[in-house]
Computed example of a mutant assay.
Amino acid sequence: MIRDALSLPRTIWLLGLVSLVNDSASDMIYPLVPLYLASVLMAGPKALGLIEGLAEALGSVLKLFAGVLADRLRRMRGWVIAGYALSGLVRPLIALSTSWLGVLACRFGDRVGKGLRAAPRDALLTLSVAPNQRGLAFGLHRAMDNLGAVIGPLIAAGLLGLGFSLREVFFWAIVPALLVVVLTLFIHEPERATLKAKPFRWDLSDQPRALRRYLLVLALFTLGNSSNMFLLLRARELGLGEAQVPLIWALVCGVAALAGPPLSALSDRIDRRRLIIVGWAVYAVFYLAFGLLPAQPWLLWPMFAGYGLFLAATEGAEKALVADLVPGDQAGTAFGWYNLVTGVLLLPASLLFGWLWSDVTPLAAFAFGSACALCAALLLAFWVGAQRGAFVEGAAET
Rank of each mutant, 00 (worst) to 15 (best):
L6C: 09
S7C: 12
S7L: 14
L8D: 02
T11G: 14
L14F: 01
L15Q: 13
G16Q: 13
L20R: 07
V21G: 12
I29G: 01
P31K: 03
Y36E: 07
A38C: 08
G49E: 03
L50F: 06
G53T: 01
A55W: 05
R72I: 05
R74D: 06
I81C: 09
I81R: 15
A82N: 02
S87M: 02
L89H: 01
V90L: 13
T98C: 09
W100E: 15
V103S: 10
L104I: 12
D110G: 08
L116G: 06
R117H: 11
A119N: 04
P131R: 15
Q133C: 04
L136C: 13
F138L: 01
M144Y: 15
D145H: 10
G148I: 04
G148K: 06
G152C: 05
G152P: 12
P153I: 12
L154P: 05
L160P: 15
L162S: 09
G163N: 03
F164P: 03
W172F: 05
A173E: 03
V175C: 11
A177T: 02
L183W: 14
T184Y: 11
L185P: 08
H188E: 07
P190Q: 13
R201T: 10
R201L: 15
R201Y: 14
W202R: 11
Q207E: 09
A210V: 14
L211M: 14
V217W: 07
V217H: 11
L220E: 10
G224I: 12
L232T: 02
L233E: 04
L233Y: 08
L238S: 14
P246S: 04
L247H: 04
L251P: 07
L258D: 00
A259F: 03
G260I: 04
G260F: 06
D268V: 04
R272I: 10
G279C: 04
W280E: 05
A281P: 01
A284W: 03
V285A: 03
Y287P: 08
Y287I: 06
G291M: 11
P294I: 10
L300A: 11
W301V: 08
P302N: 09
Y307Q: 15
G308Y: 09
L311Q: 15
K319H: 04
V322Q: 07
D324L: 07
P327A: 10
G328A: 13
Q330M: 13
A331G: 02
G332N: 08
A334R: 06
W337M: 00
V344N: 08
L347E: 01
L351G: 08
L352I: 13
G354S: 00
W355K: 03
L356M: 12
L356H: 01
S358H: 09
T361W: 04
S370C: 00
A371G: 05
A371K: 00
C375M: 10
V384F: 04
G385D: 04
G385S: 05
A386S: 07
Q387M: 01
Q387G: 11
V392S: 10
E393Q: 14
G394S: 03
E397S: 14
T398V: 10
